[in-house]
Amino acid sequence: MGQHGQVAAWWHGRLPQEWFVAPAEVRVDRDEVVVVGTLAPPEGAAEEGPEATEAALGRISRFREETRDERIAIAREAEHRFGRKVAWGVACGPEERLFTHLSAPVMTRLRQPERIVLDTLVEAGVARSRADALAWCVRLVGEHADEWLGQLRAAMTDVQRLREQGPTV
């Protein structure tokens, strides 16, 4: 199991089961862990339209306030354990909201999904640095980048698995 898998496994074991209706999505890069859980939609709320949006926003707001102290304690524990900042988010009905989250300076401020792309290219040896990776991405502006990066990550996972199975030196 790679580091991402270990971080996600810890979160799945650590989060209170009653918070979310499904396992939380755990996104990891070298700077931050973003944990996004799905809340049950409010009973009797509309499924679409402005009423659904308002009901979902109300549920998100309630969750944020009611769990604040416990979320802070869990985040501090995780930050100490994994050496990364923690951000929280929730989805409810048609809405998803991220609470305070990291915007790390690279050459510009990038959110975690963009940093993960750059770090994947560096870790795979496609680029020497985040700066080179960003320049490569701008030149490519690939419509098929998601598919290619998925294949690259799968290959890196295979390489990591093979390293773990190999002889110890």
Results as ranks from 00 to 15, higher is better:
residue 131 A to I: 11
residue 44 G to P: 08
residue 114 E to S: 14
residue 54 E to W: 00
residue 83 G to Y: 09
residue 11 W to M: 02
residue 107 M to G: 15
residue 27 R to T: 08
residue 96 E to H: 11
residue 141 V to C: 12
residue 105 P to G: 12
residue 45 A to F: 00
residue 72 I to K: 03
residue 91 A to P: 03
residue 102 L to V: 05
residue 107 M to V: 14
residue 73 A to C: 05
residue 37 G to S: 05
residue 99 F to C: 06
residue 149 L to C: 13
residue 131 A to H: 10
residue 66 E to S: 14
residue 6 Q to L: 08
residue 31 D to T: 08
residue 162 L to P: 09
residue 33 V to T: 04
residue 20 F to H: 02
residue 137 C to T: 07
residue 106 V to K: 09
residue 44 G to I: 10
residue 120 T to N: 00
residue 41 P to H: 09
residue 120 T to M: 02
residue 20 F to W: 07
residue 164 E to L: 12
residue 94 P to C: 03
residue 136 W to G: 11
residue 122 V to N: 01
residue 136 W to A: 14
residue 107 M to L: 15
residue 42 P to K: 03
residue 116 I to Y: 01
residue 166 G to P: 06
residue 131 A to P: 07
residue 79 E to W: 04
residue 61 S to Y: 07
residue 118 L to R: 08
residue 139 R to W: 10
residue 97 R to V: 15
residue 64 R to F: 11
residue 19 W to G: 05
residue 112 Q to E: 09
residue 140 L to F: 11
residue 164 E to M: 12
residue 71 R to D: 03
residue 149 L to A: 11
residue 86 V to L: 02
residue 92 C to G: 10
residue 160 Q to R: 14
residue 41 P to Q: 13
residue 87 A to S: 15
residue 20 F to D: 01
residue 88 W to S: 03
residue 145 A to Y: 12
residue 16 P to K: 04
residue 38 T to P: 00
residue 49 G to V: 13
residue 138 V to H: 12
residue 86 V to G: 02
residue 99 F to R: 07
residue 47 E to V: 12
residue 152 L to N: 10
residue 124 A to H: 02
residue 35 V to T: 00
residue 157 T to K: 14
residue 112 Q to N: 06
residue 137 C to P: 05
residue 60 I to T: 09
residue 28 V to Y: 01
residue 115 R to W: 10
residue 102 L to M: 04
residue 98 L to M: 13
residue 18 E to W: 02
residue 133 A to E: 03
residue 98 L to W: 04
residue 152 L to C: 10
residue 146 D to T: 09
residue 123 E to S: 10
